[in-house]
Write a protein that binds this DNA or RNA. Structure first.
Lengths: 156, 156
DNA sequence: ACTGAAATAAAGGGTCG
DNA sequence: CGACCCTTTATTTCAGT
């Protein structure tokens, strides 16, 4: 991971379909050298994949919410994780420090489907004693672009 | 937005670098017809961009945290939004219903840089009276793939 | 559906620690 | 010797008629 690698990662986060030639020109390298670096970043697990960003509301997902989940005992954690991985409406699930055991980020079609997720699914998972839901009113910013520090981009 | 469009969106979310030909074959369409549909999905704002997914820890971002921010009066909201957009460590910022005014998702290099963001930056923004930080211990799941309902994928 | 242009992948060779 | 980069070429993919 040198400066050149950081610049490639930065560019590919901004445009996941940037061509090798475009990137090559920006970093003063040949196209094959660039292709080889991208290949290594992928196999090293620095770049884990590529995805299209979509407007969730245009796909009928009008509700975004964060759900804090309290689980009464750590012995239920593993089973909870397994269940959560199977639920496509749950985009993120984090084990957190503090009062709640888990914090989930979900996108659902409407308040009804959110309610169903809460009472018919989450609350029925073994060990779950409490859920605390925070509804998103508007999103100011919602990106995944991991910031690359300026010192990593300096020089060439 | 018909079934074919939903299938294209689904595929491009799974692989943002899928070629037009790959997609065309999967949905039984010609490559030019597929290209035209993708172009429309982009111009309609259904697909808003493409991005490489990266492993944040491999870029030196070891801390993920959620920060609830309380702002004493709505008149400070606009200025707060503006400031938040300028801070690259803040990946998400949502106006939420409930006790807090905003919920932020941040990724920082370490606890020190998180502390700096909290006390030197966020707490100094006009109107901010309280921040409540939840540190992520491990992430079970962290994706952006908006789920496309099975009824939208049915048929062909 | 076909074609020219563009992008990617592959092969061969050179330089520097 | 290994890591890195270069140019050239073959194949695949894309864009426009």
């Amino acid at each position: 991971m040198d400066t050149t690698d950081y610049r490639i990662v930065d560019m590919l986060q901004k445009d996941g379909r940037a061509t090798q030639l475009e990137i090559a020109r920006a970093i003063n390298l040949s196209q094959p050298a660039t292709a080889e670096r991208i290949r290594k970043l992928e196999s090293n697990g620095v770049i884990t994949g590529y995805t299209a960003q979509v407007d969730a509301t245009k796909l009928g997902k009008d509700i975004t919410a964060f759900i804090g989940v309290t689980i009464e005992h750590p012995k239920y954690f593993e089973n909870f994780s397994k269940k959560v991985l199977e639920l496509p409406e749950i985009l993120e699930a984090h084990r957190v420090a503090g009062q709640d055991s888990y914090l989930l980020k979900v996108k659902t079609s409407n308040t009804k489907s959110l309610d169903q997720l809460l009472v018919e699914t989450l609350r029925t998972i073994e060990g779950v004693t409490r859920t605390h839901t925070t509804i998103v009113l508007t999103s100011i910013k919602e990106e995944t672009h991991v910031h690359v520090s300026p010192e990593h981009l300096r020089g060439d």
